[in-house]
Simulated assay, not measured.
Amino acid sequence: MKHLLRFAILGVATGLTGCSSLYFPPPPHAPLLTHQGEFYGSVSTNLQGNTALQGAYGMTDHLGVAGTFSSMHRKKTKRTENIDFGEASLGYFTRLPDKRVLEVYVGGGGGKTERIERDDEQVVTRRLNGTLSKAFAQVNYARKKRDSFTLFKHEFPFTYGAALRLSYLQLNNFQINGVAAPGENNVFFEPITFTRTQIAGPVQLQLLSGQIFGFRSNKYLKAANSVFQVGIVVNLDGNTSFDD
């Protein structure tokens, strides 16, 4: 239980520290595939309203495909933000000794972004919009340790792991108030940790938290938003108890 509380507190703290950016990162996927025919699916969200749908499938005993679609549409007093983004990747996975799993993915994605700014009288003062393109590489590692915590006299098995993602992101077709403006690009590093608790059968509760670091100092495309998601994971024809 202490692992869940530690990750949740870290995620909430980082999730509240972000400032405005034209990019909000979708959560890195961590399907932890182990064999051919295994399917992973998840739906998650966070305090910023960034909702993500993710899926992965083991095509062979070591080769898998994964996809993510995330969407954030939020309106504040002086700002509206709309970001839709999709990703697809191909990966290699393997089971290591002592119930560990290693995954390596490479992929890309794209989407669109928009920010509308208003003054105190709610008059639009600036509109920024453009498209996003991305290429990334990611490594996932999980120690599938047999462990559990007790809540209301019930045992809940859980596991935890980490993911490291390096991404190149490009802001294209950028416009400010309908006038073409120079685009930006950045390189992001996203280290995240996750905890999964088995609820019933193939259904698990997932807490994912981490941070995003940008290698370039930009005005619009910057590492301003942390990574924190709470969601439900479903693993079909897979090893949900992590004990075999």
Score class of each variant (00 low, 15 high):
145 K>C: 10
147 D>V: 10
147 D>H: 04
148 S>T: 13
148 S>E: 10
148 S>L: 08
149 F>Y: 05
149 F>V: 08
150 T>C: 00
150 T>R: 14
150 T>K: 09
150 T>A: 10
151 L>H: 08
152 F>G: 05
154 H>S: 12
157 P>K: 11
158 F>A: 14
158 F>E: 13
159 T>R: 02
160 Y>M: 15
161 G>E: 08
161 G>C: 14
162 A>S: 14
162 A>D: 10
165 R>W: 04
167 S>H: 01
168 Y>L: 10
169 L>I: 06
170 Q>G: 13
170 Q>W: 15
171 L>C: 00
171 L>I: 00
171 L>E: 00
172 N>L: 14
172 N>W: 07
172 N>S: 03
173 N>T: 08
173 N>E: 15
174 F>D: 03
175 Q>W: 01
176 I>H: 04
176 I>Y: 06
177 N>A: 09
177 N>G: 13
178 G>W: 03
179 V>N: 07
180 A>R: 09
181 A>H: 10
183 G>I: 07
183 G>Q: 05
185 N>D: 15
185 N>Y: 11
185 N>E: 11
187 V>K: 03
188 F>Y: 01
188 F>R: 02
189 F>H: 06
189 F>C: 00
191 P>E: 01
192 I>P: 08
193 T>D: 06
194 F>N: 14
194 F>I: 10
195 T>E: 15
195 T>A: 15
195 T>Q: 12
196 R>N: 02
196 R>E: 05
197 T>W: 12
197 T>Q: 14
197 T>D: 13
199 I>H: 02
199 I>D: 03
200 A>W: 11
200 A>H: 10
202 P>H: 00
202 P>W: 03
202 P>D: 02
202 P>I: 14
203 V>M: 14
204 Q>T: 09
204 Q>M: 13
204 Q>C: 12
205 L>N: 04
205 L>P: 04
205 L>M: 12
208 L>D: 12
210 G>V: 11
211 Q>E: 15
212 I>D: 14
213 F>T: 02
214 G>T: 01
214 G>D: 00
214 G>H: 03
214 G>E: 04
214 G>N: 03
215 F>D: 06
216 R>D: 00
216 R>S: 00
217 S>G: 11
217 S>Y: 13
218 N>C: 03
219 K>G: 14
219 K>H: 05
219 K>D: 14
220 Y>D: 01
221 L>V: 09
222 K>H: 09
223 A>T: 12
223 A>N: 10
224 A>T: 10
225 N>L: 09
225 N>R: 03
225 N>Y: 11
227 V>C: 04
227 V>D: 01
229 Q>V: 12
229 Q>F: 14
230 V>Y: 01
231 G>P: 04
234 V>P: 02
